[in-house]
Structure formats: C-alpha cells, structure tokens
Design a protein around this nucleic acid. Structure first.
Lengths: 152, 152
DNA sequence: GTCATAGTTGAAGTCAACTTCATGTCAAGG
DNA sequence: CCTTGACATGAAGTTGACTTCAACTATGAC
C-alpha cells in the first residue's frame, strides 16, 4: 500500500461511513472529485477521506450541503482542507453552535417557566413564540441543525 | 363576540400565524378538527387556537407532526390540552431539550479541542464522529430540531 | 477465459411538511 | 339580487439529501 493507492467507492463507503450512493451524489453536486479507470469506474485519492470527514463534521454542525460546497469552493484549487483551512472554517462554526445552544437554552428556560402555568397562549407563551426569548439579534431565524448522525 | 363564536380559516390563520393551507393540512392529518357550515366552510372553535399554540410549541421543541399527533391523541376525547396535560407533556420535552443541548455542547467542546489540531480524521475526530462525545445513551440518534420558526 | 463481485448510468422514488394551482362555491354587505 | 372576497377541493409541485431500480459493464482471482 504505497501512498499513491487509489480507493474504490466500496472502500471509501466502508471507510467513511457514507453510502456509495451518497458518494456519487456528492460527486454530482461538485463536493468530491474522482478520477476514473479506463473502464469508467471511480477511484478516490486518500484525501477524499479527509474531505468526507470535513463534510460529515460540517453536516453535524448543521450546515447544508450548499454551505459545505461553498466553504470547500472557497479553498484555492478546490483542495481538501488543510490544517489551517480547517482551523479557519471551524472557528466560524463555533459561533453558529453558540447560537444554537443559546436558542435551545432559552427555549428550555421558557419551558421551565411555563410548566404548570398552563398559559399555552399564542403570542404570549415563550415556547410557542420564542422570538423574544431566543433573542438571536434582530434578524430572522435561529438555525438549529438536523438530527446528528452518530452511526459512523 | 360571545363565547360561542366560531372562527373562519382566515381568522385562525391570522391569529395563529399558520397559513390557511397548513390548517387544512393539519385537519387532513388529524391534528385539528373543525365543524362546517351548511355550505361546507370550516369553522373553528376558540380552543383551536390553544391547540395550535401547543402544536407550534411542540414543533419548536423539535417534535415531528407525527409525534405531535401522538401526544394529542393520548389525551382523552382528543381534547385540547388543559393546564394539567400541558404540564405533563412539557415536562417530557424538557429532557429532550436537555439532550439536545448536551449534544450541541459536546460538539462545541469537541470543536474547540479540534481547532488548530488539524486532525480531521474520520473515526477519530470528535466533530466528524460525535457518537462518543455526545454520548446520549446506548440507543441510536440524538435528536436535534429543525430550524425555529420565530416569525409568528 | 470465466465468473462472481463490484461498479456504471439515468431516471425515478422517498420523506416531511407544506404550498400552489385550477376550478368552482359560499357569505354577506349594499 | 348581485358582486366581491373568502373559502372549497383534489392533484400536483417543492425542497434537501439522498436511495432505489433496472439494465448493463468492469475487475481481478482462479
């Protein structure tokens, strides 16, 4: 196994935990490039695994594929994130996570203060109408992520 | 406006913040009953507004409509949640929120410890693979909610 | 050379939670 | 009575992130 070894989709699927169909999908979506054999089969560089680690991490933070693509495309040459890239990108995730946590905590606090009061009124209840209590600034929605995929 | 007043879909849409199409959808899905005029138009009781407040609150916590339906159907007579019902139901949401918060905090802590390390490895990175760090018990996924709807 | 295993494609399907559309009916003020 | 705005319906469309399918081809151990 030299450093130039190429991986098949099956290999990458097994080692990344993504389904082969997801890998093909990511390729179509411009998130993950491949080379091909003469017969047309996909062959992945090792760096694909790092790129996929990045993608999974971003998805776990709650980024959409669109945002992931954008982040990856901002790297020169569409290269796979290096240590420095990773540090910069992940730093911006931190505040996103902070916001999500704050929103959920506000929701929980509102819930605590609501339990037993039976208020359950639109407009007045902090849980029905968390805008005032979540208070994530002036602008629109607070983003919370999709379910975490833990089964890697 | 006596206590027996009935509301049209337009009224309910305006006062609840749900689109009329969503109200019709909820009715089809068995979440919200209506009476009809002789001409076949929907008329809502006042309690529909409380029921919708409950639905919105549950959705904000991250419950699916399926779960909301289940919760509502567990109430006798499919009645709209009373103060006591609300207290019981919302208490179970609290632990769900706690789990979500814990998962996000774990993710954030992992991110902090990862920034600058450049590890970015599947299986080893806490952000790519939060299963060990989120540690929400033995069973499957940690649930995080959809985006909060703040624009009531 | 043979054959199992793994890979290829485009098109279509899935899921949740709604929205949009086309076409037609109701309610109520004047 | 008439008009206008609100409401009715079923069917189909939307979005994101994939998965599934059917029919076909490549790879590589023997």
């Amino acid at each position: 196994m030299g450093p130039g070894d190429l991986l098949t989709v099956g290999d990458v699927a097994r080692r990344s935990g993504f389904a082969a169909s997801a890998l093909r999908y990511y390729e179509r979506e411009g998130l993950l490039a491949t080379t091909r054999t003469v017969g047309g089969q996909r062959r992945y560089e090792r760096s694909a695994l790092r790129r996929l680690a990045f993608i999974r991490a971003a998805r776990n933070i709650g980024l959409s594929l669109e945002e992931v693509r954008e982040a990856l495309h901002r790297l020169p040459d569409g290269r796979t994130p290096t240590k420095a890239d990773w540090a910069a990108l992940s730093k911006s995730w931190r505040s996103r996570l902070d916001e999500q946590i704050a929103a959920l905590q506000a929701l929980r606090d509102g819930l605590d203060s609501c339990i037993g009061c039976g208020c359950l009124s639109l407009k007045r209840c902090a849980i029905s109408n968390p805008g005032d209590v979540a208070g994530a600034g002036a602008s629109g929605a607070v983003y919370l992520p999709r379910p975490l995929t833990v089964d890697i």
